[in-house]
C-alpha cells in the first residue's frame, strides 16, 4: 500500500508554468552539500558562491539562491565568511557524522562547536546502534541533549532510514525524534526537521521512506498544531525526482510545507539538473553539462 501510494505521486503531469515554478521552488529548497574528506576551503568557497548565485547566465525570471550550504564542522567558518548576510544558511553535520558511534560527550561537543563556529543549522545523526538494540530511551535522551546544546540553531535529525530495516522502524524513529525534540521546548516553524539519510549509504531518500516520515509529521501536526520540517537527502539527483517529492509533500502535508522553511533537499548534483531544465525551458534547447559550474 505504502509503496503503491508513493509510486502514485510519480504519475502527475507537471508541465509548462507549473513545471517552471516547481523547478524554481525546488532550487530554493536545496541544501547544497559537500561532505568529503577532500573538502578544501576553496572548494567550500566555490560551493558557497554557487549557492548564492546558482546560474551565471541571465534568465528572464532570475534564479533563486539555494536554502543553505551543508558542510563538515571544520569548514563552517569558511562557509560563514562567504555566506554571511546573503540569506543563505550555513548548515553543518555534527554529532559524529555519519556513524554517530562516538561517546555522547564527544558528539555534544562536536555539535556545540559547530554552532560556536557560526552554523545556524545542525544536521545530527541519531544513535542507530542503540535504536536497533531497542534502547529507544537512550536515543531519545540524546536527541534532547543535542537540541538543548545547539539551541537556538535549527536542528535536523538524521534517521538514516537505509539502516533501520523496515518502514515500521522508520515510523517509530520519526515519532520518537519528533517527541524528543518537542519535549525540550516549543518548536517554531523550521526549528526542527527530520531528515532521511546521511547520503553515505544506499538506499537513501526513497519515495516510500519519505512518505512514512511525512505521515509522522502530518500526524504530529494534527495532534499539536506544530509544524516539523522534512529533509530528504541522498539519491535525489534529477529534477524530475525532486518534482515527485514536491507532489508528495503537497498531497500529504499541504501547501504550508512547500516552503524552504519547512522542506529541504539534501543534494549536490540535483542543483545542476534543476538549472539544466530551467534553462532548457526558457532557451527552448537542451543544454550541456558543461554549461553549468560544478557544484
Amino acid at each position: 500500500m505504502l509503496e503503491q501510494r508513493a509510486a502514485s505521486f510519480t504519475r502527475r503531469s507537471i508541465k509548462t508554468q507549473s513545471k517552471a515554478d516547481g523547478l524554481r521552488l525546488a532550487l530554493s529548497m536545496v541544501d547544497l552539500t559537500t561532505l568529503e574528506g577532500a573538502d578544501s576551503p576553496e572548494k567550500v568557497r566555490s560551493l558557497c558562491r554557487k549557492a548564492i548565485r546558482p546560474y551565471e547566465g541571465d534568465l528572464d525570471r532570475p534564479v533563486p539562491s539555494v536554502a543553505a550550504v551543508c558542510v563538515y564542522p571544520n569548514l563552517v567558518p569558511v562557509a560563514k565568511e562567504v555566506l554571511d548576510g546573503t540569506g543563505v544558511h550555513v548548515a553543518s553535520v555534527a554529532t559524529g557524522f555519519p556513524s554517530g558511534q562516538y561517546p555522547l560527550s564527544v558528539r555534544l561537543r562536536d555539535a556545540a562547536q559547530a554552532v560556536e563556529a557560526g552554523a545556524d543549522e545542525i544536521d545530527m545523526v541519531i544513535n542507530r546502534g542503540a535504536f536497533l538494540a531497542g534502547r529507544d530511551e537512550e536515543v531519545s535522551d540524546e536527541i534532547k541533549e543535542v537540541r538543548s546544546a545547539v539551541h537556538p540553531a535549527h536542528l535536523k535529525i538524521i534517521l538514516e532510514t537505509g539502516e533501520l530495516g523496515n518502514y515500521d522502524a522508520i515510523r517509530r524513529a520519526s515519532d520518537m525524534a519528533i517527541e524528543a525534540a518537542a519535549s525540550v521546548g516549543p518548536i517554531r516553524d523550521g526549528e526542527v526537521f527530520i531528515k532521511t539519510s546521511t547520503g553515505k549509504i544506499a538506499p537513501a531518500a526513497t519515495m516510500p521512506a519519505v512518505l512514512v516520515m511525512l505521515e509522522a509529521i502530518r500526524d504530529h501536526y494534527f495532534a499539536t498544531g506544530v509544524r516539523i520540517g522534512m529533509k530528504p537527502a541522498g539519491g535525489i539527483k534529477k529534477a524530475k525526482a525532486a518534482l515527485h517529492q514536491l507532489v508528495m509533500v503537497k498531497e500529504t502535508l499541504g501547501d504550508d510545507w512547500l516552503n524552504p522553511k519547512l522542506f529541504r533537499f539534501g543534494a549536490s548534483s540535483l542543483t545542476n539538473d534543476l538549472l539544466r531544465q530551467l534553462v532548457r525551458m526558457e532557451r527552448k534547447r537542451y543544454m550541456a553539462a558543461h554549461d553549468f559550474s560544478e557544484a
Binding site: 527552448k284 534547447r285 537542451y286 543544454m287 550541456a288 553539462a289 554549461d291
Partner: peptide
C-alpha cells in the same frame, strides 16, 4: 532540429 540545437 533538436539534434542541431542540443548543446551536448
Amino acid at each position: 532540429w533538436h539534434l542541431a540545437d542540443h548543446r551536448e
